[in-house]
Design a protein around this nucleic acid. Structure first.
Length: 751
RNA sequence: GGCCGCUUAGCUCAGUUGGCUAGAGCGUCCGGCUUACAUCCGGGAGGUCAGAGGUUCGAGUCCUCUAGCGGCCACCA
């Protein structure tokens, strides 16, 4: 044995030993209750970042349960990560001076596909390096055909149940990313802007968005506002264009904000849209999805929103309609991905009526069918679920499963199309015009996007020809599913819903572990969709692990330059060291301050364990001892009894802490016992009577190895195998490998 | 505006049915290359557990308030 534990030399070999022997692949045994964890799929195109190293929590749970004899499935997979991946890919295009608009969607999809395939193996190799006991024989990918099939079935079911609809709604549109988002993907920042007071004839309004005045359809005041009672029913005038619009009353208007009069712009503001609906007002748009002004006086046509604002304000001032402007700090939505301002736009999108699903998902947590650990996150969950809004599941990107809906172009000639023609030029327009110059086949081959009229009929199964008009000129929706729509079904798609043996045996899964930042994005959606599709919760426990921050407690980010690459740490200190550093002394769902010093300390602990084992093994050799008995049958000295008692106490404590998901304390317990009680005290005390103490030394060592194995699988397995060489038939070493050795149970020790 | 979390040794943090003479790692000081390990061993210094009040035989741990920090949610134009 080496004087030091050398992870670099042994870890890979040990991992292969486990994998080769099939220890990661559970045997379905109807007599036994399984333990199942699905790996939250990392993005297929990215190498792992330090946050992914927190998968160690799941690996600890799996290794622990596996050693308890439960058929344990830890299922790996990766996510196509729609917007994230396309965003990264578009940046690469940009570097080459290209953009997504240069390609038809098929070509673009293929390019992204190829790019992802190049990267796909990286993350999985890294997970091996970290020692995760994943069953690679079952590895999944969100774009696997058999998974997609289930996703589409879910969509059909939602459709049949009337829970899917396509409608013109205000959506959070990012002009830069070129897609709408759900409200979860919008971040809000405080921003300094101006509040402009404008003269609308008989009334003044205040707005931060003077560039949208051309889309105003009314001015609203609060019905309780005494100042304006007499004006309701009369007309206001939009300056610059002198358009008359009604003055209406609505209680959504805040009396003491601005002038108490709100211009109503239904196409560019959520509240305005609601008020507009209520009062049956029209909703003209003046901003295009590209963020340019449309349907406005010539002077502003084609300007960006920011340019238009400047121009409109200047013109208002000239016209004497700008009463005053004052600074205002307000919150603005920005794209979580590219940080550009989100533009609320009115456009047809696909939505899921989420309330019915949410109700059941709330009940599932209330009744404890799903437990959220730590419990305080349940409140967060309820808060969000109780005010949940319909889920926009359509994204105007190509990288993802296309929504399975087909439109007949002949029935809906107003359908807007963008495509690359045979000469490679981008063409856009309505089908009724385009069909004069282009064949359907040419359009279909070069298709980029399609926007059918809001009320267009669609077919969920692609018909060969339109049942209404007989045409075969049908095109599939070009919107793709929100990534979370497919990953929200991860628990049952990966297991092969509805009738695979895996699904029947391993579903519902035991624990879902993740960070709290995707509680709404992912955890809640999985509970809703899991219950909706399978009628059963997707997991019994949702455990929130800690967030990794730097050694000063600051969030890691590329811009701060404080990111740590987990693989660098593994290569330098060993996987066990990193794993323990992420766990040791960390409170549930708090922050882990990870610095190299901590990893080093844990590396030292792994080495300590190695050396304690080495000491015992050297004694085994030098004494040429035949240690065949167990401690039970021996006469023990007081110090032996004490260390064994302390060992039993440790076993008991560790078990209790693991059951309560207190991994940080469990590891600390083992660490303190092993290093300071066992090594510093007992082992030193016993140096005068080594042979006599051997049974006790072995008992404590091997039990400790078992306790420590989930946390530090490599060094413990390495030692276990060393021991087996020297004690081939020992009753202590009952298993061929530590990974499947029986877990130590507490035996009624009271203290 | 609502909700949540944090404030414990120089630094980063543990401390969950209230019983601790308050712990760890790192750092620091003193002394040790003792044949398991210097990635080590032995010893030491270092805390009015943010502040105030309350409950209790007993509070870092429960309650109230205050201050500072961080986060999440929210349609105030």
């Amino acid at each position: 044995m080496n004087k030091r534990w050398r992870p670099q030399e042994k870890e890979k070999e040990i991992y292969q030993f486990w994998e080769k022997n099939g220890y990661f692949t559970p045997k379905i045994d109807p007599e036994k209750k399984p333990f199942t964890i699905l790996l939250p799929p990392p993005n297929a195109n990215d190498p792992l970042h330090i946050g992914h190293a927190m998968y160690v929590v799941e690996d600890i749970l799996c290794r622990w349960h596996r050693m308890r004899g439960e058929p344990t499935l830890f299922l790996p997979g990766t996510d196509h990560a729609g917007i994230e991946t396309q965003y990264v890919f578009e940046k690469k295009l940009q570097q080459k001076g290209q953009s997504r608009f240069d390609f038809d969607r098929q070509t673009l999809y293929q390019m992204i596909h190829d790019y992802v395939e190049q990267c796909r193996g990286i993350a999985t190799d890294q997970m091996r390096q970290l020692g995760f006991s994943l069953d690679w024989s079952r590895e999944k990918y969100t774009l696997d055909p058999e998974l997609l099939k289930i996703v589409f079935v879910t969509f059909k079911k939602l459709h049949q149940d009337g829970l899917v609809y396509r409608a013109n709604r205000i959506v959070n549109y990012c002009p830069h990313c070129g897609t709408a988002f759900s409200e979860l993907e919008v971040n809000h920042i405080e921003r300094q802007d101006f509040l402009y007071y404008l003269d609308y004839g008989p009334i003044q309004i205040a707005t931060t968005r003077p560039e949208t005045i051309f889309a105003d359809v009314a001015v609203a005041v609060n019905p309780k506002d005494d100042r304006y009672q007499n004006l309701v029913g009369q007309q206001a005038t939009i300056p610059l264009v002198n358009k008359k619009i009604p003055i209406i009353a609505d209680e959504l208007v805040t009396i003491d904000f601005g002038t108490g009069a709100l211009k109503i712009t239904p196409a560019h503001d959520q509240t305005d849209f609601e008020i507009g609906q209520k009062h049956r007002l029209p909703s003209p748009s003046v901003i295009s999805p590209e963020g340019k002004m449309i349907n406005v006086p010539k002077a502003y046509q084609g300007l960006t929103v920011a340019q238009a604002q400047e121009a409109v304000v200047a013109d208002l001032e000239k016209a004497g309609k700008l009463v005053k402007k004052e600074p205002i700090t307000h919150s603005v939505g920005i794209c979580y991905r590219c940080k550009n301002t989100i533009e609320p736009l009115l456009m047809p999108q696909w939505f899921i009526k989420i309330k019915p699903l949410a109700q059941k998902a709330i009940q599932a947590v209330k009744t404890g069918r799903v437990k959220i650990v730590p419990k305080r996150f349940e409140k967060l969950y309820f808060n969000w679920m109780n005010q949940i809004r319909d889920w926009n599941i359509s994204r105007q990107i190509v990288w993802g499963p296309r929504i399975p809906a087909w439109y007949c172009l002949e029935c809906h000639p107003q359908t807007r199309l963008e495509f690359i023609d045979a000469q490679g030029h981008q063409v856009q327009g309505r089908y009724q015009e385009l069909k004069k110059n282009y064949s359907f086949e040419e359009i279909k081959a070069g298709l980029q996007t399609l926007t059918a009229p809001t009320e267009a009929h669609y077919f969920i199964e692609p018909p060969k020809q339109c049942p209404r008009c007989g045409s075969n000129r049908l095109l599939q929706e070009t919107d793709t599913f929100d990534t979370w729509f497919s990953s929200g079904q991860w628990p049952f798609t990966t297991l092969g819903y509805p009738d695979s043996p895996d699904f029947r045996y391993f579903y519902p899964t035991s624990v879902l572990d993740t960070m709290w930042d995707i509680l709404f994005f992912w955890v809640a959606r999985m509970i809703m969709l899991g219950l909706y599709v399978t009628g059963e919760v997707p997991f019994r426990v949702a455990h929130m692990h800690a967030r990794v921050v730097d050694e000063k407690g600051k969030k890691m980010s590329k811009s701060k330059g404080n990111v740590i690459n987990p693989i660098d740490l593994v290569e330098k200190y060993g996987a066990d060291a990193l794993r323990m550093a992420l766990i040791y002394g960390v409170a549930p769902a708090s922050d882990v301050a990870l610095g190299e010093k901590k990893v080093e300390a844990m590396r030292n602990f792994a080495n300590k364990v190695w050396n304690a084992a080495r000491f015992i093994i050297l004694n085994l050799k030098s004494q040429n001892a035949k240690v065949k008995t167990t401690v039970k049958k021996l006469k023990l000295k007081k110090e032996d009894q004490e260390i064994l008692k302390a060992l039993r106490k440790t076993v008991k404590t560790v078990n209790r802490q693991l059951e309560k998901y207190r991994f940080g304390q469990a590891l600390e317990t083992i660490y303190q016992f092993f290093w300071h009680q066992f090594c510093d005290q007992y082992l030193e005390a016993v140096k005068g009577r080594r042979e006599e103490a051997l049974p006790t030394l072995l008992e404590v060592l091997i039990t400790s190895l078992k306790l420590l194995h989930p946390f530090a699988p490599f060094v413990t397995e390495a030692i276990y195998q060393e021991l087996k060489q020297h004690l081939p038939h020992s009753p202590w070493l009952e298993a061929p490998a530590l990974i499947i050795a029986p877990w130590p149970q507490a035996r009624g020790e009271q203290d």
